[in-house]
Design a protein around this nucleic acid. Structure first.
Length: 504
RNA sequence: GGCGCUAUCGUCUAGGGGUUAGGACGUGAGAUUCUCAAUCUUAAAACCCGGGUUCGAUUCCCGGUAGCGCUACCA
């Protein structure tokens, strides 16, 4: 594909705060930025917004990078790899913000504000009481600059405010078109606190400008902040970037997706055994659809090829676990066996079903088991409970289970099991071929077939009348029974014997 | 309260001045299988409301309603 010259210059960024686990809404923002950059052959930048020193923690930053990598998102510039416009961590950049603020004051685009927090609060309450918009009065804007400097020099604490333009602020949003805000509704914004710490809406602009960001792609909760930021661009005499505001991701109740909805961080999904390619595919479909809208399966490379910001949906989207699971099942089936086995082993080990260290024989068996069970699960963390049919054999519980009752309503079922036990007694191990032959014999001799024949046997073996094919199941049971596992696996013979005893 | 954003099946969405309003998840039914899963077939399921423009609006415009966001010396 031919790249347009301007495409190659595309520079986008993902700028998370390291204040907790990487949230699903934020990853979606990261993903859209990344897809856009990769498609355009542009640059994807990772920047850490840690000006909120109280909530930011270094360990979250590490985790954040790991989560992004796990999903399959890489970056061209960032705190760990550097780049042409350092630093990539705001806390390393305080001097820069101060310098720009002073320039703004020198240019008469900003001014010192000596109003105290209490004064401001009173003003605000009065405005609210009078049903007026609580915007800053502009009191200190009218202060003589020499007087302001004198008070500063005398050590009086002062915040720095930017002068908002008196014209309406309008900006272009790729997702929503032109957005306009009247000038009266936003007062002169503080850009640097009286303690010297800069404010977010100011800092972002400096960073984005410094890093030559061409497209700001972020959550739509920033839409109302955008006019304040545009004002900073204007004051600095800089061209504004293109904006694209992504809609919110909601929980099933229509509320903004949050922890009380369950899994909401990348780490949660990883721990559940959702494959990264499934999560990426699903996230891409939340708020974006290909032209035609008739395709759901999008591996990474196709996403990069097909993605377009113009086709991003402006309306909020409800996160649908069921559809994620459907995609995950798809990708589990597509997964190369070696990788699936390795992931699966981890889940079985953590559940205590497999030892920490696996010898070759045990690993080979575990892989066979995983291959058997994986097609049945929505997510890999269901593997241990599915594996209960192999690791746990409880005849009493199986007999007590009402779901199994109908299989034993048939008068012949006891006989079937007895016959099965008798005829396989000498087979150790029992092979699938032998199993088939025995079942056939029973069928002929007892005149029992279909469910009446298979259900009792299956219940005797795994405690349920439904489950995997016997062809695959039998070898796994038999092989497992000869392995020195701490979670002991009973052989077919042991199972049938125990079950027969319970039945009597 | 003010300002902003949003509005197609339960959910994610396609579409667009005249369509049988398309696809997918989920749900129901059927086929297949010893059974479950998978697979295949199939069914039910939507244009928020009111005005305007128009020969004709679900689509364009306006208003309402609802949801969400912002309204800080938070990010």
């Amino acid at each position: 594909m031919k790249l347009m010259v301007s495409d190659a210059k595309v520079r986008v960024r993902f700028a998370p705060s390291p204040t907790g686990q990487l949230h699903i809404g934020n990853v979606r923002t990261a993903l859209f930025n990344w897809l856009f950059a990769r498609q355009k052959g542009g640059t994807f930048i990772l920047r850490i917004e840690d000006t909120d020193l109280e909530r930011s923690e270094a360990r979250y930053e590490t985790q954040l990078l790991d989560d992004l990598k796990w999903l399959g998102i890489d970056w061209d510039e960032g705190p760990d790899i550097g780049g042409p416009f350092p630093p990539y961590r705001q806390s390393d950049k305080m001097g820069v913000y101060q310098a720009y603020a002073e320039k703004l004051i020198a240019d008469n685009k900003a001014y010192y504000c000596f109003c105290t927090a209490e004064e401001l609060e009173r003003e605000r309450e009065r405005a609210l009481a009078e049903q007026r918009q609580p915007v800053y009065s502009g009191k200190c804007r009218r202060l003589d600059s020499s007087e302001a400097h004198r008070r500063r020099a005398a050590g009086e604490p002062a915040a720095i405010r930017i002068k908002m333009p008196d014209h309406a602020i309008r900006f272009h949003d790729i997702v929503r078109g032109t957005v306009e805000f009247a000038s009266e509704i936003v007062g002169d914004q503080i850009i640097v606190r009286s303690n010297g710490m800069p404010i977010y809406n100011y800092v972002v602009v400096i960073d984005d400008a410094d890093m030559q960001i061409t497209h700001v792609i972020r959550g739509d909760d920033h839409i109302s902040n955008t006019p304040k930021q545009v004002a900073v661009y204007e004051a600095l005499g800089l061209q504004t970037p293109e904006f694209a505001h992504l809609s919110t991701i909601l929980g099933p109740d229509g509320q903004r997706l949050s922890k009380r909805h369950g899994a909401t961080s990348v780490a949660n999904f990883r721990d559940m055994g959702v494959l990264p390619e499934a999560l990426m595919n699903y996230l891409a479909l939340l708020g974006w659809a290909p032209s035609g809208g008739d395709r759901e399966i999008f591996p990474k490379d196709d996403l990069i090829k097909e993605f377009s910001l113009e086709r991003v949906t402006p309306s909020p989207a409800v996160f649908d676990m069921a559809k994620l699971y459907w995609l995950n099942r798809h990708y589990i089936k597509q997964c190369p066996p070696e990788r699936l086995h390795e992931l699966g082993r981890g889940f079985l080990q953590r559940a205590g079903l497999l030892p920490e260290h696996l010898d070759d024989a045990t690993q080979a068996w575990a892989d066979q088991l995983i291959g058997l069970l994986a097609p049945y699960v929505d997510k890999l963390d269901e593997l241990p409970e599915r594996a209960a049919i192999i690791f746990r054999h409880e005849p009493a519980a199986a007999l007590a289970n009402t779901e199994n009752a109908s299989a034993f309503a048939n008068s012949k079922s006891g006989e079937v099991i007895a016959e099965f036990a008798r005829r396989t007694a000498a087979d150790s191990p029992l092979t699938p071929e032998r199993f088939k032959a025995v079942m056939n014999e029973i069928k002929v001799d007892l005149g029992v077939k279909g469910k009446d024949l298979f259900h009792p046997v299956r219940i005797a073996l795994i405690g349920a009348h439904s489950g995997p094919d016997f062809d695959r199941l039998i070898p796994i049971i038999e092989n497992g029974s000869r392995l020195p596992l701490s979670a002991k696996v009973k052989s077919v013979r042991e199972r049938v014997t125990d079950f027969g005893a319970a039945l009597d």
